[in-house]
């Protein structure tokens, strides 16, 4: 979205996909938090769907390295691009696209559902991680602080928490009770499940970036152990979505481990 991205999309178009593309993200085992993990996984799924090679490069300060201060970001040759939307544009600039066959109306639909996930599921994940006291104390504060030495971890946690709360306040989510948050997620899953309507992917037989984004978020929610398992339980009530997640995992992630 920023100007630099626009330039890199235009300049990068002339070059083929470089061999040493690196995807920077926080440490998966001990550091990464639910919303970040979901976004990183979504980008990985998208790149795999495009059959593009990349290496995951874990860095403790990936967030601070990113041009938009959000993980993940990729370094392809001379260009650095962050977040799913930016990376999708960058890849499209090289003539690789998952949405070639869609007509305008379907593309509009796809954008609408992607914004639904960003503005509901992602914000709900932030809420659970940083506002819910139990999750914050038992998971978020420990993981987020894990890369800093003793007094600094408290300071960093405090600063980051304030920042997230400010964001939630601006989006008018901070005043919601946790039940309302779960209800929003429930509505969103319901809508996704109805839209999927028994198909293999959201748009017939080929995956798009929407499938990648849904996979990233739902897979992370299902596999991350949290003191409150309500989010995972909500997702589990929608077997169609579970099928989609399993299908994408089998298709694009299992192969990797066998090779």
């Amino acid at each position: 979205m920023p100007l630099i991205d626009k330039i890199s999309v235009e300049l990068g178009a002339q070059e083929p996909w470089p061999k040493d593309v690196k995807l920077y993200q926080p440490y998966e085992v001990e550091q990464i938090l639910l919303p970040d993990n979901a976004n990183c996984l979504a980008v990985q799924a998208f790149l795999k769907m495009c059959h593009l090679d990349f290496q995951v490069e874990p860095r403790p300060n990936a967030e601070a390295m990113s041009p938009t201060l959000k993980v993940p970001f990729i370094k392809a040759g001379r260009f650095v691009t962050a977040e799913l939307e930016g990376i999708v544009q960058f890849v499209n600039g090289k003539g690789i696209s998952l949405t070639d066959k869609l007509d305008n109306e379907q593309k509009a639909d796809m954008r609408a559902y992607m914004s639904l996930i960003h503005s509901v599921i992602e914000v709900a994940e932030l809420y659970i991680c940083w506002v819910d006291k139990e999750t914050y104390n038992e998971v978020t504060s420990i993981r987020n602080g894990s890369i800093y030495p003793w007094p600094l971890n408290y300071i960093q946690n405090f600063a980051k928490r304030n920042q997230v709360i400010k964001k939630l306040k601006a989006l008018e989510w901070y005043n919601k009770s946790i039940e309302e948050v779960f209800q929003e997620v429930e509505n969103c899953c319901e809508a996704l499940s109805i839209r999927l309507d028994g198909k293999n992917y959201f748009f017939e037989d080929n995956p798009t970036e929407l499938d990648a984004l849904v996979f990233g978020h739902l897979f992370t929610i299902l596999t991350t152990p949290l003191p409150k398992s309500d989010l995972a339980n909500i997702v589990r009530q929608h077997p169609q979505l579970i099928n989609l997640v399993q299908r994408i995992e089998k298709e694009y992630f299992k192969k990797e481990t066998r090779h």
Binding site: L116, H118, C188, A191, I194, R195
Partner: peptide, 15 residues
């Protein structure tokens, strides 16, 4: 399906 689209598009507009 239309309800689902309502939710998605109104979220898009709002965000």
């Amino acid at each position: 399906k239309q309800c689902s689209e309502t939710l998605a598009v109104s979220n898009l507009v709002q965000s």
